[in-house]
Design a protein around this nucleic acid. Structure first.
Lengths: 213, 213
DNA sequence: TTCGGGTGTATACATTTGTCTACCGACGGA
DNA sequence: TCCGTCGGTAGACAAATGTATACACCCGAA
């Protein structure tokens, strides 16, 4: 994936551009692609057997872009005390910088091509596992939370942030609000899960303390 | 929307079918549509000016389908004590029965057509408001939760359930797991929000009770 | 130096697409 | 009874699409 002839790169970038601004990746035309890339239509066949193969390569391309981002993400979480806020802020800024890749990912995750969907699901799965690992390693949440719960919340969070990133990208005036809302989302998930871990006596005490106004 | 000639209905249903099983609604062809409906291509022009107009009408059609479902939903929540569990179960069964409409909604919510996206966003907004209203009226959560919080969680929940419905539809062996996971999602949101409402003294007490093992 | 593979182009062709104009039967109101 | 509108069809058109074959250039290995 690292070495790639100029024409192939042009085609992939043209696919990203067109998929973002006009249609879905799966519905791009071969000639449309070549036109955008400034190449002869037949050049396409030098690099891809068909349009599905192009789609997969585009996913590989954006996966590469994403991987560097995830690595940076780990460092951010490592050195921050306000882990949730800074992580959310970083993730959205990152999606914003890679809006083409983000848009394609969102559209194809539940799109018509099973091939692309599987690939994207695996990508999200891996990200969720990494996130959960970081959370556990850095002890960002109470150790009373089971590992499975942390993983589940990581899954939910990543899905939520990914879709919300579309609004974040396209509605600049709402960015701050979306960011804060996402922080609340995550905090509530973890606090709610923590509450579930309390034993009966603690729950009763809590309930009582809430009851009297 | 209620009275509609046979041909028009056939075209809309053909659009739903094709959009579900092969491509996105926005990328359907006029002739493709007519072929599926068993009609002459030109019949299309008797009912729609262009493909965008068809898209809007399809959304209207599925919105009608959805509305009856939401109404039933209110009744379920009304008579149930285990509101969350039965609501989730009902919503997913409902999405399953309307898989075509659900699929189209998911794909177009962040799809390439701004027109369709606005329409869908409004639809989701209205559903979230209804859900919040029900929750508040039926006193399903503590009255200490601000109205805005209930609305926000309703928004998040509806988005989450909608997207998760795609997995629910397509992975029958995971249905039970997805259902339970969704219940946890909702419960954690509300419990986490509740926790945020506690005042300092209550939080300290809670923290202490967690600290000692 | 020659040769072969990788990259890109030109031409061509059958197929499909959106759209235009014209024709036709049904049917409801005058 | 006549007539206009509605729903549907038929045929034709230019444009665009995917694909095949053949040609041209560059560059590294032999």
């Amino acid at each position: 994936m690292s070495v790639m002839s100029a024409g192939k790169l042009k085609l992939i970038q043209a696919a990203l551009k067109l998929a973002t601004e006009s249609r879905s990746l799966t519905s791009l035309g071969l000639r449309e692609l070549a036109r955008e890339a400034g190449l002869n239509p037949n050049t396409f066949y030098r690099h891809f057997r068909n349009l599905d193969e192009l789609g997969l390569q585009v996913l590989g391309y954006i996966a590469d872009e994403l991987k560097t981002g995830v690595r940076e993400l780990r460092n951010v979480a490592d050195t921050s005390d306000q882990a949730v806020a800074s992580t959310v802020s970083f993730v959205y800024r990152y999606f914003l910088e890679n809006r083409a890749a983000t848009t394609v990912a969102v559209r194809e995750l539940y799109g018509p091509s099973p091939l692309l969907r599987r690939a994207l699901e695996n990508q999200l799965d891996a990200s969720a596992r990494e996130m959960a690992e970081d959370i556990l390693n850095l002890r960002l949440v109470s150790s009373r939370l089971p590992q499975a719960t942390v993983l589940e919340i990581s899954h939910m969070t990543i899905r939520y942030l990914l879709f919300r990133a579309m609004d974040y990208i396209e509605k600049p005036e709402q960015r701050l609000a979306i960011q804060q809302e996402s922080e609340r989302f995550i905090n509530r998930q973890f606090r709610g899960a923590l509450l579930d871990q309390l034993d009966a006596a603690e729950l009763e005490a809590l309930a009582a303390s809430i009851k009297h106004r």
